[in-house]
Structures are given as structure tokens and as C-alpha cells.
Nucleic acid binder design. Structure first.
Lengths: 333, 333
DNA sequence: AACGGTATGTCAACCGGTTGACACGGGAAA
DNA sequence: TTTCCCGTGTCAACCGGTTGACATACCGTT
């Protein structure tokens, strides 16, 4: 592997000079620049990013901790983070905590060790004060943490409210809200509250509320719980699912029971992951602007690296994607 | 951020000594070890991984390039790679090429710059010789590349053959094979060949063959093509889908057309991603031992780092996961 | 002739670790 | 007593870059 020194020798110059043309510092003649570039090309030189980071005291890596990679929502988040990072010439160090606090703490240590430029936390477990004074900013993604330096989230309350209004609009009267895994004490819990608040404004609407166990972020098997929820409410005609994955599984279970969607039961999901468009009918869902959120996270980290100020908390709007699972009673025939 | 020097000062020793206790080298008294450990704890010291890698001339990062993160198959692969890497105290640098060759080449350069321990390529575009002499091994994951130092793949031929046998066993006579995106010249293409070979052994079986355009690895919208495939063969009663995602979309489209699965049409997917169990009926599919494959990739990279030898090509068995979409004509009622 | 500014390039310290070479005191063997 | 080894610890070079300080040379001013 060629080093700067090799390039300097090849070009007949000193390391310092070569480094200058690399970093566009000071006065360098066009001739010199050219001969350096040629030498680099000849040797197939690639600067050593570690040496550079070490000396510059700043790296271009961003740590990301997610609870699960194969959950479609986090896959979507990761995808957006990767593209946002790339746009700014940053790289992603990927970690998957599987919801285990110990693993999360280990990963935080690894990030410190690697002197990342910043850490984006999408994971759920709480860190008791271990996130302060790490030497880089910690950005919480759809997750509220006191210890984090910044938070980027969505208007989950409004998302839940929109879901309720959509189901009611479509003619449902007997609603159920099925919360995702372990959302209590997380921003996502506001969905539930928003949903219930709207329901309560309608005296003729009945609502039930169910919460799934928190283990399912990884295995994604909500069926046993969903079955008992549905058993407990055979007359339900509108369901707000805490995620599209839950929504899909409800659809599968309803199909098994001979219930038609949307004729007998209407459904609103959450996240607008790609699967939501692979069902029949396609799933109505609440969509977060994940791409913008990801860009905001990266932007916060970059601003922090430049010692610029950044918002402690950013909240984005959600939107309703109306699809086949909430066609109104008069809309299908 | 505390450095080794700080620890040394705090413990009243020299840097060299402290480094020795960190790396368990030479003779160090228990007393010294203890006081070093205490000093590290007091200062909340975390060794600088970049400095260490620089000086040791070896890093613990593995680059991974996938064409898409939100495709469930690659999400599954990434998930397994992350856990395999973690088991060996390696970290993952994540890159998403979106099938673009230019981006792939850029990412390879970034990996070189970062002096990764190895690169795992799950991406599809071909690299013309740019993968040799990078300073680290390149492992091709389910992808055949001459330039790669090693390849880890599955018995795709047998996978296709199993799919054919399963559909025939379940009573299908009018088969269709729908290839995934751009599999030609990739190991996945062997699925098609295996499938067709088995079909040809049965003179009473009719087979059609279709290939989807290669762009869909990212947007995952196969519907328009699937519709025309189905239009062209209204009498088909068994479909082998190149991926579970394709399989799911076929199911949705068939449902729309009033065809029942598995009564009217039976389906076998590929990959066994988590969604395959979220449909109704659940999707029969061919499963790769992704976890073992991921471990093998990491193991190859570690062996290469130790200058040990490693296999140039490893092939794993696939298995059939029989589920609801291929119940035989006499198995449901 | 002395001076100042500009253009070009060299040198060495530093980033935070690792590691081989070596110093030193003490005990055992010759 | 000399020799040698052992246990313990120090020192400085090195990994591959970056950067401020400084040397040199050339040009135009005053």
C-alpha cells in the first residue's frame, strides 16, 4: 500500500508538499500539483483515512445503533441514513442491539473507541447517563432520551389522531388500537394517545386498546397476541396498527377468519414501509418523512463537528397514505 | 478525551508500561497492572482505535456493500453479518450501492482508504479488475466474481430443482418461473436452470420462463411485470418466484384476480425472509443458511488477516420450507 | 541598496498508540 | 567475583498523515 512518502519520492518532493496539494493549502504551482497527481495515479495511492483522522482529530464515521436490521422500518431508516451520510461524505458504522442494554453499552464504547463524529441512536433501551461527555454528539432518532444531545422525531400524536380520523371517516364505529412493542416511554407511545383522544371526542365510537410484548422487534411474530386481541373483540370494524408489520399480520389473520378487508374491517398501519404496498388490498398507513429525518440527523452531527449550534429537538410532520384498507363503505362496490 | 499518556501520568508510569498492560505484553507486576486499571477507570479511558489500527497496521472494520438495504433479503444478510462480525469483535462499515457501478467503485475506494480488514460484496454490478491488490480480501456473497478473493454462495441449482419438485409433488402441471432482477451471470441464475432442468424431466409438465427487469432491487415494485406475466398464462397453476418479495406480490395480484392460493395456484418463493410468514397462507420458500454464510465470510476475512489460508469458494446447502402455498390438492379441504 | 510581498517548498513536531532495544537491581550458578 | 538470567520498567522510533514555522528566490517599490 502506497503512502504519502512513496508519492513524495515518486514525484521528487517532500511529504509536506504533497500533503499540501492533497489538502489545497498554501501556494503550490500548477506543475507541482500535476506531478503529484500523476505520481498518485501511478502508485494507485489512497490516503490512509485513519492516519488522517488521527492527525486531524476528527473522523468521518457515524455510528448507528438500531434494535433490529431486518425489521422493515429500521431497514428503511438505515437506508435513508446511509444515503444522507454518503451525500456528506460520511460513512456508517452499523450496530444492532437487539434491544439488549448491555450490547448497546458495548456499542457505545466501540463508538467512543473509534472516535466517531457522532452517534445516531434508534434503539430502545435506556442508557443511564452513559451518553454524556462522549466527545461526540448523540442524536436520538424517534426516541426520547434525556442524555442525548439532540432528538429527531415525528409528530406521533398527530399520526395517531390522523389514523383515528381516517377510520372514523371510513365508517368504522368499533375501533381497536394495537400498540407496537415497548413504545411506552417512547415517542411512539404518543400515537396511542393521539388515537384515543380523537376517539373520545366521538361519543358513538367504541375503542379498545392493546399492547404487544416488547420482544417482537426482532422476531416479528405478533400472531399469537393478535389472535387473542381479535378473539376478544369479534365485532371490531377498524384497527389502528402500531406498525405496518403488525397491520400486515392482522390482515393475514383476518383473511384466515374469513373477514374481508376493507368491507368488514378497515386497517391503518404506521411507517409506510415497502411491504405496505405488497398486500391486497394495499395498506393505508401513516408515513414519516424518514429521508428528511435522516438528513437532519447527519446535519446535526456535521454542525456539531464544526462547533456550530444545532437544535436540541426537531419534530417532523407525518402524512396519511390512503390506500385500499380504508376505502369507505361507499367507496368499494 | 483521556489518552494513554494521561493514564500513564495518573498512574505515575510511562506510556510504554501502560501500553504493555493493555496488551498483556512482557513482565508486569500485579501492583502495576492494578494501578493502571484504576487510573483507566478514573479517567474513563477508551483506547483510540484509529491510533491502534494505524500502529498495528490492521483494523477491525469490515466493509459491506449491498445493493439495497430495505430489500428484506439484504436486511436479513446484513443482520447476520452484523452478528457474525460482533462475535469476533469486528465492526461493519455499511454501504449501499443501489446497483450503481460508479457508487460501488467509490465505496471500494473508501474501504481502501479506511484500510478495512476485508470487504464483503453482496452487490451485483461487475468490477473490472478493480478488486485485485486492495490490501485486504474481497469476499463475494451470493455473487460470482473472478476478481474476488473468495466466494460464499448457495446451491442455487439445487434450490431451483427443489422448488420444481415441490410444485410438481403438490400436483401442478402448468408451471412458471419468474426470475429476480438481473440474476443472469450471477449465481442466482442457477435457480432458473435447476428449476427448468427438473421440469424437463417430466414430459407432462409445461413450463414458462420470465425475467423481471433489474431495476427492482431498490423500489421492489414488480407488479406491472407480474401482471403481464400472469395475463400471458391464465392457466398457470404453479409459480416459482425468484424471491419471497416477488412471491408476495404474486399472491396479492392473484387475490385481486380471484384466484385462490394454493387451490388454484401454488407458489414457491426464495430466501425465507420474515415476510414469508406474514402472508395468508404462509409462503413456501427455499431457505439459505444465511447465518452460517455470514459467519464464513467473517471467518475468511479473519483468516486472511492472520495470513492463514482460506477457501476460494464455499457452497452451502439450501432447504425447503414447506408452508401453506404448496399444500397438495389433497392436503387442504 | 534596502525592503516588502508573493510564490514555492522544506522541516519537524504532533495525533495516540505499539514495540523492540535496552537499563538496572537482585539472585543463582560457575 | 564474575557471569548470566529474570523480573521490571524506560526510551524512542514508528505507523501515515497534518500543519505551523521557516528558508529561498524572485519581483517590484521606494
Amino acid at each position: 500500500m502506497a503512502t504519502l512518502k512513496d508519492v513524495a519520492r515518486e514525484a521528487g518532493l517532500s511529504v509536506g508538499t504533497v500533503s499540501r496539494v492533497l489538502n489545497n493549502r498554501g501556494y503550490i504551482s500548477e506543475d507541482t500539483k500535476r506531478s503529484v497527481r500523476e505520481a498518485m495515479a501511478r502508485l494507485n495511492y489512497q490516503p490512509n483515512a485513519m492516519a488522517r483522522s488521527l492527525s486531524k482529530q476528527s473522523s468521518s464515521m457515524i455510528g448507528v445503533i438500531v434494535p433490529s436490521i431486518s425489521h422493515p422500518y429500521f431497514a428503511k431508516v438505515l437506508s435513508c441514513l446511509e444515503s444522507a451520510a454518503r451525500e456528506q461524505n460520511y460513512q456508517l458504522l452499523l450496530f444492532c442491539s437487539q434491544g439488549k442494554v448491555a450490547r448497546e453499552e458495548e456499542y457505545v464504547r466501540v463508538c467512543v473507541s473509534n472516535r466517531v463524529a457522532g452517534l445516531i441512536l434508534c434503539s430502545g433501551s435506556v442508557e443511564t447517563g452513559k451518553l454524556r461527555n462522549l466527545g461526540f454528539p448523540v442524536v436520538a432518532f424517534e426516541r426520547f432520551i434525556n442524555e442525548a444531545d439532540a432528538g429527531v422525531e415525528c409528530d406521533n400524536y398527530e399520526g395517531g389522531a390522523m389514523a383515528a380520523r381516517e377510520l372514523i371517516r371510513a365508517g368504522c364505529r368499533n375501533l381497536m388500537c394495537i400498540g407496537g412493542a415497548g413504545e411506552v416511554s417512547m415517542p411512539a407511545d404518543a400515537r396511542r394517545v393521539g388515537f384515543l383522544d380523537v376517539c373520545r371526542q366521538h361519543p358513538d365510537i367504541e375503542v379498545r386498546e392493546n399492547i404487544c410484548a416488547p420482544e417482537h422487534l426482532d422476531d416479528l411474530n405478533y400472531f399469537p397476541e393478535l389472535r387473542s386481541f381479535l378473539d376478544s373483540a369479534p365485532d371490531v370494524d377498524g384497527i389502528f396498527a402500531g406498525s405496518d408489520v403488525i397491520g400486515m399480520q392482522i390482515m393475514a389473520e383476518l383473511a384466515k377468519r374469513g373477514k374481508r378487508v376493507p368491507q368488514d374491517v378497515k386497517i391503518v398501519g404506521y411507517d409506510d414501509v415497502n411491504l405496505a404496498q405488497m398486500t391486497n388490498p394495499q395498506l393505508t398507513t401513516i408515513c414519516q418523512p424518514v429521508h428528511e429525518m435522516a438528513q437532519e440527523c447527519v446535519s446535526i452531527i456535521i454542525r456539531a463537528a464544526r462547533n456550530e449550534s444545532y437544535p436540541a429537538r426537531t419534530m417532523f410532520h407525518v402524512t396519511l397514505e390512503r390506500r385500499g384498507t380504508t376505502c369507505g363503505n361507499d367507496e368499494y362496490t
